[in-house]
Amino acid sequence: MNIFRFAGDMTHLISIVVLLLKIYATKSCSGISLKTQELYVIVFLARYLDLFTDFISVYNTVMKLVFIGSSLAIVWCMRMHRAVKRTYDKELDTFRHYFLVLGSFVLALLLHEKFTFQEIFWAFSIYLEAVAILPQLVMLQRSGNVDNLTGQYVFFLGAYRAFYILNWIYRFFTEPHFSRWIACLSGLVQTAFYADFFYYYFISWKNNAKLQLPA
């Protein structure tokens, strides 16, 4: 464990707390893409198949349970909770995310570290996580004005993988045979998707203005 990775995990946790806060405090999920949340459930379930087979540390197991539990809770809330599901902007959340699932799975069948069930699903979860934010980013552009909590949620979500990139650079230099080129390349693509969001987020923060994404 290094400071970059710990910062990344904490930033990831903060993004989930901000989203839960927004949904429970405002009893609204307006501006949130249900499709992105569903993709994250698939990402965590596919990635943490080793939850009960490989014990790495208490921290690792607890965080995996928190990520799986919170992502399921958010999807349940947006689909089933009477008050919340009414605020879901279904007509704005139109990204065909099934193609993202299919594409990531096909890519995982072609590009993986070992051709085993667990490794294929791990690579699938890595590729899917890189594109999972797309429905949310498209929805933000469609909905024009972005409320603060939603903007902060996406910001922390993008920042967490940027910390992980620093973690991979650090591990590359400190651990002799450290190689996670799948996660590294995919993490770079994932963070690149946030580039324009980060730009507009910084502009809005600098001008102390509302976050506006160009349509």
Binding site: D54, I56, M63, E113, W122, F178
Partner: peptide, 10 residues
């Protein structure tokens, strides 16, 4: 035992 490809990250 460390898992096959060092999946020690989240």
């Amino acid at each position: 035992t460390t898992p096959p490809s060092a999946k020690d990250e989240l």
